[in-house]
């Protein structure tokens, strides 16, 4: 951009150039505007087409679609509650596992890491983000699940007292496929996103701020707790929500490892399903109209859940920024 475009200067020496700059600027504005509106239009279009595609399901089942966990393609009865529960449970558990680790990684990289290690660890975290989800799925099914079954699931199941609630929520097929395994795989998948964003956030803290805290005699822990984290709190919530968003929509890795049973999950080792896994499993062969419509309606439900999560994050960020 020329200076003439930025500062309207009525010097008669270069009128053509200025006119060109003004015209170009107008065009640039229109381009940016259409880029932004194109996105909105695409988003709106997706929502509308999901709603239209899923309409037969909403029409047939009404509110039952959201509260029933019955999913029977033969009888043509569909309810989203099982998949919604599976989605929320796995995503929340994944966040629960990933969050402390991501914080640890980011804080280590920024505050404690010897410069020699900073690069390799940082790159490793970023590489983790680049692994395709199908690879996580295969690894989860063929490597992680057997190991998990042998070293975690079986000991827990065998040590559970018969008749207790604990026994009830730890029963399952001892092959490592189920809600908990899916959550752990998800946690590994969202870890790099949260960790990398968190690291960038922590790096934005001016050195003076941290150094002043150290100068006042704070320990590393105190600096992290009282200075760094409050400083980046707003952005951190955004990072967490991005991770959660990814966990909600993750498809392939979950499909491989969750055990794919419709209905409400009964224990942490039980098979379950998520919205994304159900769609991935059944859409290709959904020949009946109502079956396809119900899967599209599931897509809309997932869209709404993600939207609510992001809106909540915005709200939180807004509130924090106002404080």
């Amino acid at each position: 951009m020329t200076a003439a475009a930025d500062v309207p200067s009525p010097t008669p020496t270069a009128p053509s150039r200025s006119a060109f700059g003004a015209a170009f600027d107008k065009g640039f504005e229109i381009l940016c505007f259409s880029a932004a509106t194109f996105l909105l239009a695409a988003l709106g279009g997706i929502v509308v087409s999901l709603a239209i595609g899923g309409w037969p399901a909403f029409q047939t089942f009404g509110l039952n679609f959201f509260v029933s966990a019955e999913w029977d393609p033969v009888q043509e009865i569909y309810g989203a509650a099982g998949a919604v529960t599976g989605t929320l449970v796995t995503a929340s558990l994944a966040l629960l596992f990933a969050l402390p680790l991501a914080f640890g990684i980011a804080i280590f990289l920024v505050e404690l890491c010897p410069p020699l290690l900073r690069r390799p660890i940082g790159t490793a975290v970023e590489l983790l983000a680049g692994i395709p989800s199908i690879v996580y799925g295969m690894w989860g099914l063929f490597v992680f699940a057997p190991w998990f079954a042998k070293h975690v699931q079986m000991p827990i199941m065998m040590s559970a007292e018969p008749g207790t609630l604990w026994e009830k929520i730890t029963t399952g097929v001892p092959n490592g496929a189920g809600i908990l395994s899916a959550s752990i795989i998800l946690a590994i998948m969202i870890l790099p996103f949260i960790a990398a964003t968190m690291r960038e956030l922590l790096l934005t803290i001016p050195a003076q701020v941290r150094e002043s805290a150290y100068g006042l005699g704070s320990t590393t822990f105190e600096v992290v707790r009282k200075v760094s984290i409050p400083y980046v709190r707003t952005g951190a919530i955004g990072a967490i929500m991005l991770g959660l968003g990814r966990a909600l929509g993750e498809t392939m890795a979950v499909t491989f490892i969750i055990g794919n049973a419709h209905g409400f999950p009964t224990s942490i080792f039980a098979s379950g399903s998520t919205i994304a896994s159900t769609i991935a499993n059944e859409f290709a062969e959904a020949t009946e109209r109502l079956h396809a419509a119900s899967l599209i309606a599931l897509g809309l439900v997932l869209f709404l859940i993600t939207f609510v999560v992001l809106a909540l994050a915005r709200l939180l960020i807004g509130r924090q920024a106002n404080l």
Binding site: E70, V74, V173, F256, G259, A280, H291
Partner: peptide, 11 residues
């Protein structure tokens, strides 16, 4: 695709 009474589903 049916409503399986029992078991696990593999992709």
């Amino acid at each position: 695709a049916v409503k399986w009474p029992t078991g696990q589903g593999g992709k």
